[in-house]
Design a protein around this nucleic acid. Sequence first.
DNA 1: GGAATGACTTGACACTGTCAAGGCTTTCGT
DNA 2: ACGAAAGCCTTGACAGTGTCAAGTCATTCC
Lengths: 221, 221
Amino acid sequence: MTRVAAETTDLPTLLCDVAAEVIAEKGFGGFSLREVARRAGVSHAAPGHHFGDLPGLLTELAIQGMQRLHVEMAEASQGVDDPAERLTAMGQAYVRVATAHPARAELAWRNDVIDTDDPRYLEAGQSAYGVLHAVIEAVAEAYNPSLPVNDAAALAWSSMQGIVVLRSKLAWMGEGDPSTASDDLNQAMEALVARLTPLMINGMAGVPSAPSAATRSEPTG
Amino acid sequence: MTRVAAETTDLPTLLCDVAAEVIAEKGFGGFSLREVARRAGVSHAAPGHHFGDLPGLLTELAIQGMQRLHVEMAEASQGVDDPAERLTAMGQAYVRVATAHPARAELAWRNDVIDTDDPRYLEAGQSAYGVLHAVIEAVAEAYNPSLPVNDAAALAWSSMQGIVVLRSKLAWMGEGDPSTASDDLNQAMEALVARLTPLMINGMAGVPSAPSAATRSEPTG
DNA sequence: GGAATGACTTGACACTGTCAAGGCTTTCGT
DNA sequence: ACGAAAGCCTTGACAGTGTCAAGTCATTCC
């Protein structure tokens, strides 16, 4: 009857958009396939017809989230020469995607409800990681050729993802006011990323060949 | 009937343990209050009687997770004098809690299904952050008095949480084999934390333009 | 022009969270 | 000591959910 969005788009993409909207609105509790169908103006079994089952739809959203992460990080890194600035731009792009598409970005890491063996999911994830890895390699080349690139890349991605998860708890951490509007929170997070990146870059630039600050537990040299 | 666990513990804690077990086993899909009641050998409405509703039970688990994070980080930092080593020990404790109690640790950050306004939740979170903040302050005192402590603490916590979330994706990142057993994965993650901490400490210690900051290993000589 | 394919609906089933009502046991006041 | 009150838990019911089989209808293909 009253389909909510443009009639031109096909039903699967419409269902994805509606699902992301519902999740962003009410979280994963209160989300249901039937409500998605209701908002899209189709029968309750229509989603099942296109995506098989609930994990099928959520996996599709997760793939889209990972792909978006990939393309926006890649775009953000283009045209920025300095490796440190490029890492900052990518981190900000990551945060921006996570706030602009919360459902898709969160689902990308919800191993318990998606099919992590889907080849499209794997490919999107590895592509995204490839972009980050390239930037860290540039950082290593510019600042410290002996930098353990894999470790540094893991640190960078972990930090970005951690910031997104801890976003609502930044008030605990003296990083702004809890009552800030979402636009301000977004800006505050991009600013935080901009301040955190040099902290990481400094660590990557100055890492001694034999770390002495903490106990080493890596046996192989 | 056939209650599954020790009869000595009271029903609420039994229900929490069973719920955590079910979530760890089958994820949040496939989890239901009724199955928890079934495994505990009580009627289907017993959980509701003690916790009100589903968010009530999940919030209780989240509080327990945050508290565990707090106490284990505090314990890990005790008896370790060097700030860098203490930060490493705390990071490893964080990872250890997240792998030993996956349901509780994950729920601690699932804002969509828990009640984040619960005062016990808030208190536990702020206590945990306080422990981390103290360590970062010690790092600042030892290595770099002008370190922005709040930023550095946010970076440290974000990294720890990010590592936990990305744990299953470490294979993409050249950080070990995807087929490693869970015990090995646990060890690999603690080793990763041990390698990442010096990276962060170096970044916190100072700017790379000052060459002494990059090469020195002892702050006091 | 008939058949076959795909898109979607209808109807059904087992299951879920939540609530009201009731029973049973323990505790408490007097 | 004895009735009342309070807690703990069960039973029963209701609306809502995911999923599957069967059916309807238009399009496409030969």
